[in-house]
Nucleic acid binder design. Structure first.
Length: 250
DNA sequence: AGCATTGTTTCACA
DNA sequence: TTGTGAAACAATGC
């Protein structure tokens, strides 16, 4: 599920619990909470309140009051933020905060690749894919011999693009995922950025990356929503990739 | 049974 | 040293 649009939704969920006093923390999952030992996160959060929720790409972090440490969260491959839900606690809650008055916020993640950590380090994370300016986008994305899609997926280049959003964006921009990123013209880079922003905005508004226009066709036997051509399928940047060979020519 | 998976990190290699 | 690509990680679903 989680790419930039889902992470933004998660950030908005976190905002619902700002200001509440934390009375308990479940940080027993030593994989999700690595490198922290059980109880370590609890020790610094109990008694505090979350004050502000931030996001850069798919990375989330929350400030705490009185100069307390930031709490970093990542949804991994299948996580989401569950706030004050009925079925809580849930067997797939990998990390959770309990608040005074009975409320609860959990990182609910079947795959267990999500992450909860104190004082997260984002020094190797690029600018947010939906916020990055034109000139910075040109400079960061439009270089290298790696396939364009691999460049988009590199969170150190720009942050927030996942496998589905990459396919959706490249289809909208009519660019081939396999072309070397450094070969793009300035016009193509600007078009790519424009479609990335539009695809991201649409996904946030409509409820997730799976609501993209290209997504229903993105399966074996699928055809292009624009011209009906059978889609091509291959592994690009280490991920399964679909594209239209007609309107996204190499 | 075997394979794929909306993500990130680590490691090997050029 | 830098850039690129594959494998590992965990667990579920088809």
């Amino acid at each position: 599920m989680p790419e930039l649009p889902e992470a933004e939704r998660a950030r908005q969920q976190i905002e619902r619990v700002l200001g509440r006093e934390i009375v308990a923390v479940d940080d027993r999952d030593t994989y999700v909470c690595r490198p922290h030992a059980p109880g370590e996160i609890a020790a610094v959060l109990v008694g505090r309140r979350l004050t502000k929720a931030h996001r850069r790409g798919k990375f989330l972090w929350v400030e705490t009051d009185d100069g307390g440490p930031d709490l970093g969260l990542h949804l991994g491959m299948a996580g989401r933020i569950a706030v004050d839900e009925e079925e809580s606690p849930n067997r797939w809650d990998r990390f959770a905060l309990e608040f005074a008055g009975g409320g609860r916020m959990a990182l609910r993640d079947k795959r267990r690749l999500g992450r909860a950590v104190i004082e997260p380090d984002f020094s190797h994370v690029g600018p947010d894919a939906a916020e990055v300016g034109r000139d910075v986008f040109r400079e960061r994305v439009g270089r290298g011999s790696a396939p364009l899609k691999a460049r988009l997926l590199d969170q150190g280049v720009i942050a927030g693009v996942g496998n589905l959003l990459a396919d959706e964006t490249l289809w909208r921009a009519k660019l081939n995922p396999k072309v070397a990123a450094g070969e793009l013209s300035v016009e193509e880079l600007d078009r790519l950025r424009r479609e990335l922003r539009a695809a991201t905005r649409d996904a946030i508004r409509n409820g997730g990356v799976h609501t993209g226009r290209f997504m229903p066709s993105r399966e074996k036997g699928g055809s292009c929503p624009r011209d009906g051509a059978p889609l091509a399928r291959d592994t690009v940047g280490g991920r399964t990739t679909y594209w239209c060979p007609t309107c996204q020519p190499g």
